[in-house]
């Protein structure tokens, strides 16, 4: 399945203060080998948000993925699968293994606003009795069990408050807007097959 945006790449939306524009946010482009994400493999790009939307800014990943999913549908874009859950776990290795590329979207309590975007490599993340898995561990499990090693990134959107409330704080909403604009640009910049 190809990732095709019918209108081509939209204009950039970043000002000079953007951490992405300044290189603090990670990649400035898709950094994908041609054809890999959309592929010749016939596999989709997976956008996976996680967090608890009932915990204020912990839900930024869910909110962004919902927005991206609506945008993909409205734009008639194909080759994109959106998914979300409270946290990552072992079964997500199945979805990762079925994808040509993966973007995880999570909240972060530290780091620059509005967001960071970094390449991930499969690795174990060791922690005590956790009931969730880190994205690096999900990638490692997909690699080990299914021999799949899709390129993957983590978009970390900066949050401020984590109380059992909704909706997002104003600053988190602004960060989601910036992250969404950048991610849409990024998705559109993936070259066609």
């Amino acid at each position: 399945m190809d990732l095709i945006h019918p209108r081509g790449k939209p204009a950039g939306v970043y000002g000079p203060d953007s951490p992405v524009a300044q290189g603090r946010g990670g990649l400035s482009g898709p950094d994908l080998p041609t054809g890999q994400a959309r592929g010749g493999l016939g596999r989709p790009l997976l956008i996976y948000g996680y967090g608890n939307p009932g915990r204020q800014d912990d839900g930024v990943g869910i909110v962004l993925v919902e927005q991206i999913e609506a945008w993909v549908k409205a734009e008639g874009m194909t080759g994109v699968v959106c998914d979300a859950n409270y946290q990552l776990n072992a079964e997500d290795a199945l979805a990762v293994a079925a994808a040509a590329a993966v973007v995880f979207v999570d909240a972060t309590a530290r780091g620059p606003a509005p967001f960071t975007f970094k390449r991930l490599t499969p690795q174990q993340v060791i922690s005590f009795s956790t009931h969730a898995m880190a994205p690096e561990s999900v990638l490692a499990l997909a690699d080990e069990l299914y021999g799949a090693r899709p390129p993957a990134w983590l978009m970390g959107i900066r949050g401020q408050e984590w109380e059992p409330n909704a909706p997002l704080t104003a600053s988190a909403q602004a960060n989601v807007a910036a992250a969404g604009a950048w991610l849409r640009d990024w998705m559109c910049s993936i070259p066609p097959a």
Partner: peptide
Amino acid sequence: RKSSVLAST
């Protein structure tokens, strides 16, 4: 401490 740490596979 048991932090979340990365370890090579």
